[in-house]
């Protein structure tokens, strides 16, 4: 019985300590709005080109990332190599992702799912706000996407500066957005689960 209590206490402690990442800094306040619209990539017919520098499992890869906003619910995203060949071409419609083209070497279910999820986090147009926290630097909105909690850190101008995706046990992904007004200049993406980093610099 004593052993069972010890195990229970250990698990409780583990959950408590592992959940610190799951609570934002600041004071919980009432939601002022129900939806947070991302200030980036939402201009209809907007076309965006980025130099993409990727570190994937220790390999350095370069390319060009292309994003086009077709309408308020639809975007296209393509990654091409420096030589010009298309590596992938995805269509994002609301919460769904359609593969228009993927290079044969990348055409594996797990890889596609991972790429879809990662790029969706970067270009998703709007998030339902579940909770709001107020801190000195700005606010944190809590939302949900891909079945996981999303933390949207916005500055005092309500501009998205950092997005974090977490499960109850650990942080999954972090994305920094560096912008001048709503014109995005640089995006830094990092997976906390896999050795993957993507640096996007406006071309």
């Amino acid at each position: 019985m004593l052993k069972l209590i010890q195990i229970f206490l250990s698990i409780s402690l583990l959950i408590l300590t592992s959940c610190t990442h799951y609570k934002p800094i600041g004071e919980k306040v009432a939601n002022e709005k129900s939806i947070y619209s991302s200030p980036y990539f939402n201009e209809i017919d907007g076309e965006f080109l980025f130099d993409a520098k990727m570190q994937v499992f220790g390999n350095d890869l370069n390319g060009i990332l292309v994003i086009k906003t077709i309408d308020e619910n639809k975007k296209r995203l393509a990654l091409i190599s420096d030589f010009g060949n298309t590596l992938l071409d995805f269509e994002f419609v609301n919460d769904e992702v359609n593969v228009i083209y993927i290079m044969d070497d990348l055409n594996k279910k797990l890889v596609i799912q991972m790429l879809e999820n990662y790029f969706q986090l970067i270009i998703h147009p709007s998030f339902t706000i579940k909770k709001t926290y107020l801190a000195e630097e700005g606010k944190t909105y809590i939302s949900k996407l891909q079945g996981k909690r999303i933390f949207l850190y916005v500055n005092k101008e309500d501009q998205l500066v950092y997005l974090k995706q977490s499960s109850i046990f650990r942080d999954k992904v972090g994305v920094y957005f560096y912008a001048k007004s709503t014109q995005i200049e640089t995006i830094q993406f990092e997976s906390f689960e896999l050795p993957i980093k993507i640096n996007l610099i406006k071309r």
Binding site: D45, L49, I64, V66, K68, I70, R76, A78, I80, G84
Partner: peptide, 15 residues
């Protein structure tokens, strides 16, 4: 001069 044509883009990407 390299021009990458993507059907959904209004201009080709040039290098």
């Amino acid at each position: 001069e390299q021009q990458k044509h993507l059907a959904f883009l209004s201009n080709d990407i040039q290098s």
